[in-house]
Amino acid sequence: MNGHLSPDVTGAQRRVIGPYMLDRRLGSGGMGIVYLAHDGAGRQVALKVMRPELAAREEFRQRFRKEAEAARKVARFCTAAVLDVGLDGDQAFIATEYIDGPDLSAVVEAQGPMTGSTLEALAVGVATALSAIHEAGVVHRDLKPSNILLAPVGPRVIDFGIAQLADTLGGDTGVVIGTLPYMSPEQGRGERVTTAADVFAWGCVVTYAATGRPPFPGGGDAEILYRVAHHVPRLDGLDERLRPLVEQALDKDPARRPTAQQLLDRLLGRERVTAEAATRLVSDGWGLAGPAPAAPQPRPRRWLVPVLAAITALAVSVAVLALTLGRPDRPDGAALAGRDLQIDGVKLHVKVLSLTRKGRTVVLQWSVRNDGASEWDQWTAFGTGPLTRGSTTAPRA
């Protein structure tokens, strides 16, 4: 989102809000406009400036201070931390950590739905963020794909700085805040909203990430609200490992939904997982090639046996040639031997990279490459981490 300041920021007096210098506009929403800005030390922040007609109301200003200060207490687990809140004349602002990355909706629209370990890492990261937000007594109320940024270190949930404290919602009956396709039934009815609404939104977000559409698709607003309140969610295409938990999160009755912490525990297959541990699991494996699996749990090894059988056969062939013809000449980096395989409809090419002897031990280095058009999940296929390259050490016969 490169560019200049929007036309509404022209005069020199409007280029500075509080201690922040505005650099460029990042986007806007129902509550205000978001700018990339920096402070006196040059630190970049995302500065959300509330709309003047809201900030001019004393009732809003009082609630704003209370709710924004509560957001500052949210731990920095998979969230964009709230760094500062303030009022500058008729301008109310929230400064948060600037996350350099696209949002989930932009990535899904450009690259298609997520699968496998990438999808699992997203589900864990968002659940971790909700756990931290709820622990601080805050309800997000508007969790949606555009409020989830995919940073280099993992997914980050943003825009909870204007969420209302769970214990201040008693007087809000009839006030509807949220985005229709990701809104819980109780939100749509204007009822009291709790953390269970965020869990419902988590189920909607995970469904969108996995299928490219929310679980209650529809035309107009009235149709979407009706589907959310009365229809079974559309989950075809959702990973079967995530589907049971998503179904629980999308229960019409908020009392029957799991909490964010329970989501996290069940996703990682542990009795209770801290947000810090979950964040580390996601961030450690989240890189340019996509996040690593959310947790090291045992998986089926249905591909490992045929792949290793092919590699062993190649290694024997290489060893025989080496004994009969001596060390074969080959260009640096070239494979000693290769073979094409097809497993579960996926075309693979396996290569023996080196075969060396160290004392009474033989070390074999090999690699596996997907040559087909079908996607594959290496975690499920091999029952281990990304296994595109490996080595095997065995006693010398």
Score class of each variant (00 low, 15 high):
Pro306Val: 05
Cys78Ile: 01
Arg257Thr: 00
Gly137Asp: 11
Ala309Asp: 00
Asp23Phe: 06
Trp379Ala: 15
Met183Gly: 03
Glu53Pro: 01
Gly42Thr: 09
Arg72Trp: 02
Ile343Met: 01
Ala209Gly: 00
Arg192Leu: 09
Gly18Asn: 09
Phe382Leu: 04
Gln164Asp: 06
Gly29Lys: 01
Leu263Ser: 06
Val139Ala: 03
Arg256Met: 13
Gly345Cys: 06
Ser184Asp: 05
Met114Lys: 03
Asp332His: 08
Gly112Ile: 02
Val282Trp: 00
Thr393Leu: 02
Met1Ala: 12
Val107Gln: 12
Ser105Thr: 07
Thr79Phe: 03
Lys347Tyr: 01
Pro331Ile: 08
Arg156Pro: 05
Val126Ile: 13
Arg301Trp: 00
Gly101Met: 05
Ala277Met: 05
Gly383Ala: 11
His349Cys: 03
Pro145Gly: 07
Leu268Cys: 09
Thr392Cys: 13
Thr380Glu: 15
Phe160Gly: 11
Leu169Asn: 13
Val362Glu: 14
Val193Ser: 12
Arg227Trp: 03
Ile224Ser: 14
Tyr20Pro: 06
Ala277Tyr: 12
Val45Thr: 15
Ala313Trp: 10
Leu122Lys: 01
Thr380Lys: 10
Thr179Arg: 07
Arg57His: 15
Pro254Ser: 07
Gly345Phe: 04
Ala260Met: 05
Leu304Ser: 11
Arg61His: 11
Val205Gly: 02
Asp329Asn: 08
Val85Arg: 07
Gly345Tyr: 04
His231Arg: 11
Pro185Asp: 11
Ala319Arg: 13
Gly11Trp: 04
Pro185His: 02
Arg396Cys: 11
Met50Ser: 12
Asp329Cys: 06
Asp332Thr: 15
Pro19His: 04
Gly285Asn: 04
Arg302Asp: 14
Glu53Val: 02
Pro217Ser: 07
Ile148Phe: 03
Val157Asn: 10
Pro185Gln: 04
Val176His: 00
Gly18Trp: 07
Val175Asn: 09
Pro291Asp: 06
Arg270Leu: 12
Asp371Ser: 07
Gly27Asp: 02
Gly287Val: 09
Asp8Val: 08
Leu225Ser: 15
Phe160Ile: 06
Val9Thr: 12
Gly219Tyr: 10
Phe93Glu: 02
His230Arg: 10
Gly112Trp: 00
Asp8His: 08
Leu250Trp: 06
Asp221Asn: 12
Leu245Asn: 10
Gly237Ile: 02
Phe64Val: 10
Ile33Asn: 06
Arg227Leu: 07
Ile177Pro: 00
Val16Leu: 12
Leu5Cys: 10
Glu247Cys: 10
Thr384Ile: 11
Val138Lys: 07
Pro293Asn: 09
Ser117Gly: 10
Leu245Glu: 02
Ser374Gln: 13
Arg330Trp: 08
Ser283Met: 07
Val45Gly: 08
Cys78Leu: 00
Thr274Arg: 15
Ser374His: 13
Pro152Asn: 08
Arg43Trp: 09
Arg256Leu: 12
Gly333His: 05
Arg302Gly: 12
Gly385Ala: 09
Arg227Gly: 13
Arg360Asn: 13
